[in-house]
């Protein structure tokens, strides 16, 4: 499957690329030949680490800092990208931030933060980027299992990601005639800083519980998600659009106490 030059001569812009899934996507796309614009918000050092990995693969890396909940900063980010390249081939939306709250504890500022970033930022970034995206372009958004399943304290991000999945379907429909695809990759539980933040102090126990409930018996890695993103970004995935590809090790296949291993012979 590894074709080193598949994405050669192409530019990818990955949001939230300083850490976790976004960083893995940036590196994986670079490994397939893409030059990568590495967006980050606060974690400059980590973003520089991602850029260094991209450059170590012989590709160009462009660091772009922006708070994607702020329209003016998205405009600056796009301007920063355009000053380096007039052409964008792959847009990966991996940035997210939220407050994990029960519904009754959600305050207006929590709502604004999550939705302005995940939904508003996505819409504005896609609108701004589309004039640079030609035929065979790709928009790939990282959604999540909180759209299909209810997770504790996840109402804000889960519903925002749900909006993301619906928006991506409209995008796929509208861009189909231009042979630009738009898809979501929906991870289950992935070993990232975000998962650790979500689990608070109990990450090892959380990971053990998740592994027990996951068909393949382990928590996912950012590289697992990046491999799916990179496949969808590849030239041979040009007829896949409007889809949600779930990368959860089969976590969503089990229901309640009926763990997958109960069914095994």
């Amino acid at each position: 499957m590894e074709k080193a030059s598949d994405l050669g001569g192409k530019w990818a812009l990955v949001t939230g690329a300083s850490r976790g899934i976004g960083a893995a996507c940036a590196v994986s796309l670079a490994a397939r030949g893409a030059d990568v614009a590495v967006h980050y918000h606060e974690s400059q050092e980590a973003a520089e680490g991602t850029a260094a990995q991209v450059e170590a693969l012989g590709r160009r890396a462009l660091l772009l800092k922006a708070d994607l909940s702020q329209p003016s900063e998205i405009a600056s980010l796009l301007e920063g990208f355009r000053s380096t390249s007039r052409q964008l081939d792959v847009l990966v939306l991996a940035a997210a931030a939220t407050a994990f709250k029960e519904v009754e504890q959600i305050r207006p500022h929590h709502l604004a933060k999550t939705y302005n970033l995940v939904v508003g930022g996505m819409v504005q970034l896609v609108q701004g980027a589309l004039p640079m995206i030609g035929p065979n372009g790709r928009v790939i958004a990282i959604s999540g299992s909180g759209t299909d399943f209810t997770l504790p304290g996840y109402a804000l991000l889960g519903s925002a990601k749900g909006a993301m999945e619906v928006f991506i379907r409209y995008l796929a429909q509208e861009l189909g005639g231009r042979q630009i695809t738009a898809n979501c990759v929906s991870p289950g539980v992935i070993d990232t800083d975000s998962a650790r933040f979500y689990a608070k102090d109990g990450y090892p126990q959380f990971a053990a519980r998740v592994s027990a409930a996951t068909a393949v018996g382990r928590v996912g890695s950012p590289a697992d998600v990046a491999a799916a993103v990179t496949f969808l970004a590849s030239p041979e995935a040009g007829y896949i659009t409007g889809q949600v590809l779930v990368v959860d090790g089969g976590l969503g296949l089990s229901s309640g106490p009926f763990m997958p291993h109960d069914a095994a012979p």
């Binding site: 695809t181 896949i240 590809l245 090790g249």
Partner: peptide, 27 residues
């Protein structure tokens, strides 16, 4: 284009994907 999706799902890169349906349908 269908073969490429089959090949991806069979590859090591898809080792965390199981029980899923990937449509290759142009939307």
């Amino acid at each position: 284009e269908v073969a490429a999706a089959v090949l991806f799902l069979a590859s090591a890169g898809a080792s965390h994907i199981t029980g899923q349906v990937l449509s290759v349908n142009g939307g």
